[in-house]
Design a protein around this nucleic acid. Structure first.
Length: 454
RNA sequence: GCCCUCGUAGUUCAACGGAUAGAAUAAAAGUUUCCUAAACUUUAGAUCUAGGUUCGAUUCCUAGCGAGGGUACCA
């Protein structure tokens, strides 16, 4: 989604830096590290054959399970539940570990580096498979200190205030919001602290940036509202150009996905599954004579990924997406493969027509379907602009779908090679060529490839 | 409790306050001596409820009902 929005904004004529913010430090990381130390018995991605991010994620889940067990035990002993949540031994240990990490403890930092490397390697594999890339990476382990610094400045300026226990807060009740913590009592940074630091660092590194777009799920609406307000109050003039592109989360039929509880659909598995389905359908149809196995598997990937990406990008980003893993994503109807198929048919025509795209066509009387298509083609630049203004890949997807539907209808009812005269034929091939170009271009904006055959 | 989203055919999605609310899918029927039938054509089916603003409301406002999220010294 972020990738697509970046491409769309670029296409609208702006310069974009695609940035990934990696939250590589904090209590959540310590939780995984601690669980691995306690229960991991030296497991590594090599020893288990698991992707690194998957392995570390498993220990994040493991921590949560143990944590919940301890809470239950404490409650059974008569402790108050809120109290139990705060005093569970494993949580205290994680907190201690975070302190050690911020103090630069060698063993902790070494373990941290090792486990992070596993995660990054796993991420890289997934991004490569998805066809997504970034211009720059920000590691919050590098920016949280700046965040703490800024909090100290803000404290002096009176934007923040200190409570008795030493924790630092901002009071936003005047803005209709609540109080929000920006630094823990033990002096360690929270999520907000790092985000403050990261934002400022990004502007420092790229002074030509006019604004930032955060592509983050809508469960964090409140967080970003507060973050932007803090930055405004700190007096940064770029703070007025901050956007939270808040997308609806993907829901499973049984509810929200939670990485902490391990109730997630693995992106890698999903990509694999889609590719397999694409292959099954393709083999059934059997239109790929002359393609090598290598070409075929590449094509299946293009189709499978296309179906997956289109499924996500075609709906308004703000909406929640309901995804039932038991019902696989469609390949017919308003789908990626439907559009890819049309593109492939157009390429087939162009191959057979042997057409010089540069030469002018003399048009006589246009068929109504042709007129419609030409009108649609003319809208393309406006649609891009609109999609950029609204940060909405869905507008591109819907437009492309409409164009393709129009083309298929035209293809069905108007003969191309069987046209009455050369002029008509040329016109129709030319239109096909242009439609093909727009499909390719718009799908590029969605990060989806188009096949020459399928 | 407080705050924020959302509520449209059986289902998944469209519709910058404008005409007869569009698609897909599922259901029913049809199209292949012709350029790829992963296609095309046709039929049936929907704006949560009650008020209000407006010449005009799916869209804006109020209330209710329903769903989800947030409000953590988690991220």
């Amino acid at each position: 989604m972020g990738y697509s929005v970046a491409e769309i904004i670029k296409a609208s004529g702006k310069k974009v830096y695609k940035t990934q913010i990696i939250n590589d430090r904090g209590i959540h990381i310590c939780k995984s590290m601690l669980a691995w130390e306690k229960y991991g018995q030296g497991e590594t991605p090599q020893s288990t054959g698991l992707k690194g991010d998957k392995l570390v994620g498993n220990y994040y889940v493991k921590f949560d399970q143990e944590y919940k067990k301890e809470i239950a035990q404490l409650v059974a002993k008569g402790k108050d539940i809120e109290d139990a949540k705060k005093t569970a031994p494993i949580l205290l240990e994680a907190k201690k570990m975070l302190l050690k990490w911020e103090a630069g403890d060698e063993a902790t930092v070494t373990l941290w580096k090792t486990m992070n490397q596993w995660v990054y390697k796993g991420f890289d594999e997934s991004y490569a498979a998805l066809g997504v890339n970034f211009d720059t990476n920000y590691y919050e382990s590098n920016t949280y200190l700046l965040g703490k610094e800024v909090v100290a400045q803000g404290l002096e300026k009176g934007i923040f205030y200190k409570k008795e226990d030493g924790s630092v807060w901002i009071d936003l009740t005047d803005e209709g919001l609540d109080e929000k913590i920006v630094l823990r009592a033990d002096g360690t940074a929270v999520y907000m602290t790092q985000d403050i630091g990261t934002a400022i660092q990004r502007i420092k590194d790229f002074p030509d940036i006019r604004g930032l777009v955060y592509t983050v799920g809508n469960e964090q609406d409140y967080h970003f509202k507060v973050l932007f307000l803090i930055l405004k109050k700190m007096g940064y003039d770029w703070a007025k150009n901050l956007h939270h592109l808040s997308y609806g989360m993907v829901d499973l039929p049984e509810g929200k996905m939670k990485s902490r509880e391990g109730t997630v659909v693995d992106a890698d598995d999903l990509m694999m599954e889609m590719t397999t389905t694409a292959g099954d359908i393709s083999q059934e149809l059997g239109k790929l004579d002359g393609y090598s196995d290598k070409e075929k598997s590449k094509l299946y990937k293009t189709i499978g990924l296309g179906a997956l990406k289109y499924f996500i990008l075609k709906v308004d980003p703000k909406k929640r997406i309901l995804f039932d893993p038991r019902e696989s994503i469609d390949f017919n109807g308003n789908t990626g493969p439907f559009i890819q198929y049309t593109y492939a048919r157009i390429q087939s025509i162009l191959r057979k027509a042997n057409f010089d795209t540069k030469h002018d066509v003399v048009t006589s009387i246009l068929h109504p379907k042709e007129k419609e298509l030409i009108k649609l083609l003319q809208n393309y630049p406006t649609v891009i602009q609109n999609a950029a203004d609204n940060l909405s890949p869905a507008l591109i997807a819907n437009y492309t779908y409409e164009l393709v539907k129009g083309y298929n209808s035209f293809y069905q009812s108007v003969p191309i090679f069987g046209a009455d005269n050369e002029n008509d034929k040329d016109t129709r091939v030319q239109i096909s060529y242009m439609v093909g170009n727009v499909i390719k271009s718009s799908f590029l904006l969605l990060g989806i490839k188009v096949p020459d055959r399928m």
